[in-house]
């Protein structure tokens, strides 16, 4: 009861006008927006969705035994490049939550931020099952393919598949995150992507 008799109640009329004024000011574009700040929230959302896609893609992929480590060893997923949007952490979290394995093997997730130094070369020569090129990656696809030709190569942008013969890439198109998939990924023996994913016409574009 006290609330209804409070100053708040008495001032409601003037506050309504204030709110409406705010509405018109905002709607006419007069609210200052920080044009120089990147849309971090959006980028991080993209990273999370891509990381989730990656968990599905790994489940949809089959490796032949020679392309997998020994039964007691961990399968390897290597992320290449700077990660400013939480992709690596997102994928680590998803892998942990879903207890992800590749053909029964635990996962080792390796993040290589720098250029192709000796440590990176060593890791890449250990037959990683998946290599993911982050958006900020300076690694050259052809160099990496030479080091690890039997890895599933995933990256960003249409050119990653069309120009550089990567296997799968993420693109942002029409406010959605979509997949460009290299046709050979379905036809080769290992690593082979399940054809069921190719039926998702709104999601997947198959090229080459």
């Amino acid at each position: 009861m006290l609330f209804f008799n409070s100053r708040f109640r008495k001032n409601l009329t003037s506050r309504r006008l204030f709110v409406l004024l705010g509405f018109f000011v905002a709607f006419s574009g007069m609210i200052p927006v920080d044009a120089n700040t990147s849309l971090m929230d959006e980028k991080r959302r993209v990273a999370r969705v891509q990381a989730t896609y990656l968990t599905h893609l790994i489940k949809f992929t089959n490796w032949e035994q020679p392309d997998l480590p020994g039964k007691s060893e961990s399968a390897k997923i290597i992320m290449l490049g700077e990660d400013k949007n939480g992709f690596v952490e997102s994928f680590r979290f998803l892998a942990s939550q879903s207890n992800m394995k590749i053909d029964g093997r635990d996962l080792e997730i390796i993040h290589l931020k720098q250029k192709l130094n000796s440590e990176a070369k060593l890791k890449l020569s250990q037959k990683p099952q998946v290599i993911f090129f982050l958006a900020e990656s300076n690694f050259i696809v052809s160099d990496i393919k030479k080091l690890s030709p039997k890895s599933l190569m995933i990256g960003n942008g249409r050119d990653f598949v069309v120009e550089f013969d990567g296997d799968i890439s993420f693109t942002n198109s029409k406010n959605r995150i979509r997949l460009i998939i290299n046709k050979k990924t379905f036809s080769r023996n290992s690593p082979k992507l399940s054809s069921s994913i190719s039926t998702l016409r709104n999601v997947v574009e198959i090229v080459r």
């Binding site: 959302r45 969705v49 989730t52 896609y53 599905h56 998702l200 999601v203």
Partner: peptide, 13 residues
């Protein structure tokens, strides 16, 4: 993680 690929593709940027 609970979404399949089809539903994941509906997430707007």
């Amino acid at each position: 993680l609970e979404l399949d690929v089809s539903n994941l593709s509906q997430i707007p940027i």
